[in-house]
Design a protein around this nucleic acid. Structure first.
Length: 488
RNA sequence: GGCCCGUUGGUCAAGCGGUUAAGACUCCGCCCUUUCACGGCGGCAUCACGAGUUCGAGUCUCGUACGGGUCACCA
């Protein structure tokens, strides 16, 4: 009989709770998720919190919230359960030491009693000599007697991995190809710390194995470390996972994108008015490219398209301009009701008038919005006419200036005063009738109108729309203000 | 510094030995139009450098330069 579990793809996202969701991490989570789902496999979350000094309040919640907002659902993980739990490393504490001890017995690791002071000395000597700082193997070959003596004396110790002293280790990464390193370059890294907690390097391997992870998706910074992990797998006689290392995401300065860059975290991006789906869509494309020319993909479409072969090797620069463009596409694709609902919240930040036709305003705003955050500025002229300069009336292309603008405003004032049905349609009709009567170019009337009613050069929609939005009294009052300003 | 990795326009990128070297964003021009935007059309701009392999190299090999990563009782 065939065991289906044997071939089932299992991936994980293993963040440490830092207190924010970096876009690089989000992308790693995304790729990991996509890979699992692409193959009908399982995606799980494991929290790597072995460093007790770095505990951040509420940090795990941020991870869950971000992932959920992004639409990335995990099949197993904290709070969700699964047969491979617990999924928080601090809750698995006891388990790692056992494995480390097994390794000590089999000769793959050893107890080290060196104190911080000695280690520092060794390191600085090595540095001074210009060689790579590494553990010097002081405790590597202690006799049983020496070990029991120290243990009896209560000298605290760590467990270190015993690296081979010759040969090379290599493996095939699914993105980067063959990677090999000299074993002599491998440090006898610490597996279990003095406090009994495992280091990341150890816990990560143990858990990946215990949780039956088949594909490890992670950042490129682990590429050169992977041979060390593989040596661990070998010492235990475990099957190694497939490795998929992703290129890093850089800031525009060409440095690795860090929290200091602003908009480097998912939360910040959402605060700036970006849609979660658009962010996911954009970061999916940062370092991976689909087969065709399409670039707008919903998450479930991404699952279908995703493939490890499309992941690139070179680092990518995070380009907020491109994100904005994609976000704009998502906004334009929203249905009106949904757009209105979200837009209202932002409109209300600077426009509090209750008698505004919100549907009309939303309709005007939708094709002009790249991020919701820019809406408040677009509608800030509605509540109160800005104190504008009459130079705005001069527009080269429209062939307007202060003089002919004054004439236009004076001509439209009585017409507006006579309009009973104050709607866009009748306003539009009235204005175009005037244009025809004066037999001038459209802009000669429309431009002064826009400036008079908005006090701005760029507005969402033209004069008639704005007039309809503002209502009769406000519009007429603003036209009079314009006439005053121009008459001086 | 040792080791590992990378390098196609300003940015994301396609490309798998023979292409006029796709496409998208940005920028510019034109059209549409009531400004801006949307939409449409068009344009600027790229194989880091040097050798080698080959009839032929962005594609393969080596070197150089530049960039990044990594060398913790952090993850």
């Amino acid at each position: 009989m065939q065991n289906n579990n044997e071939n089932k793809v299992r991936t994980r996202f293993a963040p440490s709770p830092t207190g924010y969701m970096h876009v690089g991490n989000l992308r790693t989570a995304l790729y990991s998720f996509l890979l699992a789902k692409k193959h009908g496999g399982t995606f799980l979350i494991r929290i790597e919190d072995t460093d007790q000094e770095r505990y951040v309040e509420g940090a795990t919640e941020i991870i869950y919230k971000s992932l959920s907002a992004a639409g990335i659902v995990w099949d197993e993980g904290p709070g969700k359960g699964g047969e491979y739990g617990p999924y928080i490393q601090s809750e698995r504490k006891g388990l790692y030491k056992e494995y480390a001890e097994k390794l000590v017995e089999s000769g793959g690791a050893y107890l080290c009693f060196c104190g911080k002071q000695r280690l520092d000395e060794v390191r600085s000597k090595q540095k001074a000599a210009g060689i790579a700082p590494m553990y010097d193997g002081h405790c590597r070959d202690l006799s049983r007697d020496e070990i029991s003596k120290k243990t009896a004396a209560g000298v605290s110790c760590v467990i270190r991995q015993k690296m081979p002293r010759a040969g090379t280790s290599s493996f095939i990464d699914s993105v980067f190809g063959e990677i090999s390193v000299e074993n002599t370059a491998l440090d006898d890294q610490i597996l279990i710390k003095t406090d009994g907690m495992p280091t990341y390097n150890f816990a990560n391997v143990i858990d990946d194995h215990l949780m039956a992870i088949t594909h490890v998706v992670r950042g490129n910074e682990y590429l050169a470390q992977t041979p060390k992990y593989n040596l661990l797998y070998d010492s235990f006689g475990w099957k190694k996972p497939e490795y998929i290392h992703c290129p890093m995401i850089m800031s525009s300065a060409g440095k690795v994108l860090s929290k200091r860059d602003g908009s480097a975290t998912f939360e910040e991006l959402l605060e700036q008015g970006f849609l979660p789906d658009a962010v996911i869509n954009y970061i999916a494309l940062l370092g991976w490219s689909p087969k065709g020319e399409r670039e707008i993909y919903a998450l479930d479409e991404l699952i279908g398209e995703f493939g490890v072969s499309g992941i690139s090797k070179s680092p990518a620069i995070f380009d907020i301009a491109k994100l904005r463009a994609i976000n704009g596409e998502y906004i334009r694709a929203m249905d009106n009701e949904q757009f209105n609902r979200t837009a209202n919240e932002y409109i209300r930040k600077t426009c509090r008038r209750e008698d505004i036709d919100m549907d009309l305003l939303s309709k005007m705003l939708k094709p002009r919005t790249e991020t919701f955050a820019e809406i408040p500025e677009q509608v800030d002229f509605i509540d109160r006419l800005p104190d504008y300069n009459i130079e705005l009336y001069t527009h080269k292309k429209m062939k307007t200036n202060s003089e002919n603008s004054l004439v236009a405003l004076q001509a439209m004032l009585p017409i507006f005063e006579k309009i009973d049905d104050w709607s866009f349609d009748s306003l539009h009709a009235a204005i175009f009738a005037l244009i025809e009567k004066l037999s001038v170019k459209n802009g000669l009337v429309l431009w002064p109108l826009r400036v008079a009613v908005s006090g701005k050069q760029f507005t969402p929609g033209g004069g008639p729309e704005i007039a309809a939005l503002l209502g009769r009294d406000e519009t007429i009052s603003r036209i009079k203000t314009g006439i005053d300003k121009l008459s001086k």
